[in-house]
């Protein structure tokens, strides 16, 4: 405390008059670095990784045990792990994203950030990229399973690449959608719950399409293509890259981040 009294004497003011070198600001990169660092310091993120790896490990061994019998004709399917991961995303993504914006809003730190010379978009992109990067690490961890598979059988490399690329984009789209809910509410639990529900709905859209396919096939096709599964399971997971699938995921990311930005802006307007 006594230090401050000394500081407040007039002769100290020259300290502030020193030059500040400005420029070259890439705000989203700073946000990205901080958020990604937080993931690697957060016990929750490790718990997610543990739960995911344990679950995948058990299923992977169940899958491999079929190959004990050479006559069973089990083919090495490297798309299995990324496929399971995309299914788990409805749990993983909300946990990764729930605090991203909700916490900033609740703690009030959003107010300070929004008075820094940084567009909301940069801020949201930085946060999104961090969550996506963490998910990418999770996805890359499943390469261990791939390497095991590769030592036992002969997975199709092209299919493997397609499946991983698809799972990566899929994760990006899901995380972006979850960002919307964390921007809407300050309550992390509500954000996580609504995110999980949204992702499940998108995941099950093709099932929903089945129910209406007899009454309105046109609408059923629309609903199916709106969902996530139609753009992954039948195409990329099998090694087929369709431009429209890539566009779907990319547009999903752009659209969801755009909406998130709008919500944060609107909250500023109403704040």
């Amino acid at each position: 405390m006594s230090v401050m009294t000394d500081q407040s004497t007039p002769h100290q003011s020259h300290v502030l008059s020193q030059d500040v070198k400005m420029g070259g600001s890439v705000p989203f990169w700073a946000v990205f670095k901080r958020e990604l660092g937080l993931y690697f310091r957060s016990p929750v993120a490790y718990a997610i990784a543990f739960a995911m790896l344990f679950f995948l490990g058990v299923l992977f061994n169940g899958y491999l045990s079929q190959a004990l019998d050479a006559q069973a004709g089990v083919l090495a399917d490297a798309g299995y792990m990324p496929f399971l991961l995309t299914f788990l995303l409805f749990l993983i993504a909300p946990l990764l994203t729930m605090r991203l914006l909700a916490e900033e809003a609740r703690e009030g730190t959003l107010e300070v950030l929004m008075t820094l010379p940084m567009h909301e978009g940069q801020f949201i992109i930085g946060k999104f990229l961090a969550a996506w990067a963490y998910y990418t690490v999770l996805l890359l961890l499943t390469l261990v399973h791939f390497l095991v598979l590769n030592s036992i059988g002969t997975p199709d490399m092209g299919q493997t690449f397609g499946a991983y690329l698809g799972a990566w984009l899929y994760g990006g789209a899901v995380i972006a959608v979850c960002m919307i809910w964390t921007a809407v509410t300050e309550d992390q639990i509500i954000a996580a719950f609504l995110s999980a529900a949204t992702v499940l709905v998108l995941y099950l859209a093709d099932v929903a399409a089945l129910f209406i396919t007899n009454t309105n096939p046109q609408l059923a096709e629309f609903v199916r293509e709106l969902g996530l599964s139609a753009h992954y399971g039948s195409t990329m997971a099998a090694g087929i890259i369709r431009l429209e699938d890539i566009l779907y995921f990319v547009f999903m990311i752009i659209g969801a981040l755009f909406i998130t930005t709008r919500i944060v802006e609107t909250r500023r307007w109403r704040a």
């Binding site: 199709d156 092209g158 299919q159 397609g162 090694g239 087929i240 890259i241 369709r242 547009f251």
Partner: peptide, 16 residues
């Protein structure tokens, strides 16, 4: 844009 691209049927088979 999506519908337009979908109708173009641009696709790539990666499988070996």
């Amino acid at each position: 844009v999506y519908i337009f691209v979908r109708n173009q049927e641009v696709r790539l088979d990666l499988t070996e």
